[in-house]
Write a protein that binds this DNA or RNA. Sequence first.
RNA 1: GUGGGCGUAGUGUAGCGGUUAACACGUCAGGUUGUGGCCCUGAAGAUCGAGGGUUCGACUCCCUCCGUCCACCCCA
Length: 432
Amino acid sequence: MADQQQSFRAPRGVADILPDDQTLWRAVKSTAILTARQFGYRQIDTPVFEHTSLFRRGVGDETDIVQKEMYSFDDLGGESLTLRPEGTAPVCRSYIEHGMHNLPQPVRLYYIAPMFRYDRPQAGRYRQHHQFGCEAIGDPSPTIDAEIIEIGLHYIKNLGLSDVTVRINSIGDSDTRHTYADELRNHYTRYANDLPKVDRDRLDRAPLRLLDSKEPATQKLSAEAPKSLDYLSSEARVHWESLLEILDSLKTAYPKFSYRIDHTLVRGLDYYNRTVFEFEPSTEGSQTSLFGGGRYDPLIGILGGNPTPGVGFGSGIERIILEIQRQESLNVEDPPLNAVMVHVGETATKRASSLAAELRNHGVSVLLAPSGKSMRAQMRYANRANANYAIILGNREIEQNAAAIKPLQFDGDQDMVTLDAHKIANHIAPAD
RNA sequence: GUGGGCGUAGUGUAGCGGUUAACACGUCAGGUUGUGGCCCUGAAGAUCGAGGGUUCGACUCCCUCCGUCCACCCCA
């Protein structure tokens, strides 16, 4: 308010992750990392921006992401760059660029990274959001499709989330998908008069989308619509059926796990083929997809690499956090600091700084109470600081060459300890 | 891009056509001699989202804009 001119706020659809939020964020991220590692995935970070053409080609020129959601800009050299809207295309670019086909296949990679989409913000949807993603590149077998789904089960379980529904489908390979799309178009065109306007509009552009329309009239028609599973090539069918078998066999390790084959499940990115899946909570809501992905065998070829199969998923951290809060499934607290240094008087203040520095060298975490304030004020500060002990330095202590050490988190006596970092460190954080 | 709800101190809320715009939490300072948590006292902090109208008078009514939330679209 001191500034009469203007006050800034974060741009639309982006958010600060404040210290209070970080506790949960850290817990979720470390769960993600532990999960990925448990499956042998290794971390990869790709740049926040890429050549615009990477997404135009990889994600698909006709997709909504490319058509209307990209943060694209020309840099000072006239290069068109784009803030990454999704993680798979960049990882595949990196795979090709660094010749990862020379590594043992499949190459298993994970990332936790911000994504950017120019979208209208709403619950669980932001212009910058963060995704935990895994990609397994170089293995055509359904085993690896199942592995990717299993990572999701493991992740969700470790976060304490329950009531999560897994939906899967196979959309076939690109050739059969085209004939399927035509069949679908024919089906809906027959009832074009019954279609709501939104759906009539996208009938040509994206017939698959009508399958998961929210319009009751369309839903009625979708029940009778041809299913992609009936159009699979024999190879795709074998792949699909053995995937289901493997998923069934996962039930010994995950007794509560069940999946639903959902022929209305389609995905909006062009590179997907065969397996597609989505995890969502059973609770009502709108932007609820917690985890989604599928197989993208055509992608590496599209991006100029040797044709190489891949599967992967992305999972929105913000949505996971919303769901954790809804289900109250995870209770995390930051560990307390070891000590707060309370110091009154010039000499004491000086000594407090040097003592704190020495203590930190002993691995102790120390916070200085604000200088020049009364002891009461500093003790009040110490109380809010979430620390185990107050180390009190005043004239008396300096005279006695000692520090008063008072427990803050439990009732106990205040001790006088010789003013020596090693002794004090031992007192407040004894080495086990 | 389309539709709906909402916009009062840092946060959460109250309020009414005329009030010094209230309360809680938080912040800061105190509560005699250097020691937190509870309690008590006091202070700072809001041009009541912005602009325009209606009115003698608007935080309160109307319009526009902006922001925000929710929904569609799409997705994580």
